[in-house]
């Protein structure tokens, strides 16, 4: 027998070239709106097939991990903790909604409308996975199209806006968090929520950057910002998004540099509510 020597067979090159071309073709298919639906469908099937397997493995392995982490009576405590977190989140959200509604009262009366969340149905779902990719901020939740969850619907929980559904299979859905770099949320703030900005994600664990805030806009740390209902109505108005973490002016009187911390505790999500709202309504 002899050990392989360096060689570059034509066959190897052909195989690599074919696979590279195939990958590029798939990327192109995914980018095109027509054929992109095909890849979305394939992804949806994969989610449906693997969701029960992943859930089963997690059910087996996570308690072991929790046990070794030192949790005694971990099962009951974990369930209790999740239940309490969900309750606290709902109460916080209700409180902030009330605050937001108070600020918008004049406008709402003028529009003869009611707060959208009050009249919209929600679907409660459990988070089953967090950040599948190292470069995106997203979660996978336990409800999908079969439970009425569709792409584009806002997701709230644990005190404020969590994100938006970007993929939905039959039994699960992927939610793009507001901290994801691709996420952009129109926000309103000020004494009567008459000031607008655009909050963009900057990655997991980082504050959101708020653009389009004119120089000299009166702000204070901790000031809350709410969805403004604009931006093609991606979100209903009045959902708490974040509180001002920092702000400063720029040289030359350009837009202010403002960051906000999400009001929802995105690192501790156990349950979320999907709001039955379609963009553009």
């Amino acid at each position: 027998m002899r050990v392989a020597r360096p060689r570059r067979s034509r066959r190897t090159l052909v195989i690599v070239a074919v696979l590279v071309l195939l990958s590029v073709t798939l990327i192109t298919f995914d980018a095109r709106s027509g054929t992109g639906r095909l890849t979305a469908g394939i992804k949806s099937v994969a989610h449906d097939v693997f969701a029960p397997i992943v859930a089963g493995v997690n059910d087996v392995l996570r308690p072991i991990g929790d046990f070794f982490a030192g949790s005694v009576h971990y099962g009951a405590l974990q369930q209790e903790n999740q239940r309490l977190q969900a309750t606290i989140g709902e109460l916080r959200l209700q409180l902030r909604e009330v605050q937001g509604e108070a600020k918008q009262q004049k406008e709402l009366h003028a529009l003869e409308g009611l707060p959208y969340l009050a009249s919209l149905k929600t679907v409660t779902a459990q988070m089953i996975n967090f950040d599948v990719s190292n470069f995106d901020a997203d979660i996978t939740i336990s409800k999908g199209r079969d439970q009425g969850v569709t792409v584009g619907e806002p997701v709230v929980g644990a005190g404020g806006l969590v994100g938006q559904v970007v993929e939905a299979s039959h039994t699960t859905a992927v939610v793009q968090l507001i901290t994801d770099p691709r996420s952009s949320v129109g926000v309103a703030f000020g004494p009567t929520n008459q000031l607008y900005g655009q909050a963009s994600g900057q990655g997991t664990g980082k504050p959101l950057a708020v653009g389009l805030v004119p120089a000299g806009t009166p702000l204070h740390r901790g000031e809350k910002m709410y969805t403004n209902g604009l931006n093609d109505a991606q979100y209903p108005p009045g959902i708490p998004v974040g509180s001002v973490a920092s702000f400063r002016g720029t040289v030359g009187g350009g837009p202010m540099v403002v960051t906000i911390d999400p009001l929802a505790d995105l690192g501790q999500l156990a349950y979320v509510a999907v709001v039955q709202w379609s963009p553009g309504l």
Partner: peptide, 20 residues
Amino acid sequence: DLFLPTPFGLSALVGTLIGA
């Protein structure tokens, strides 16, 4: 790629080149 929000095929392209 089936579970990532990034373009479908991107990981396959990288995997092909790295494996080769």
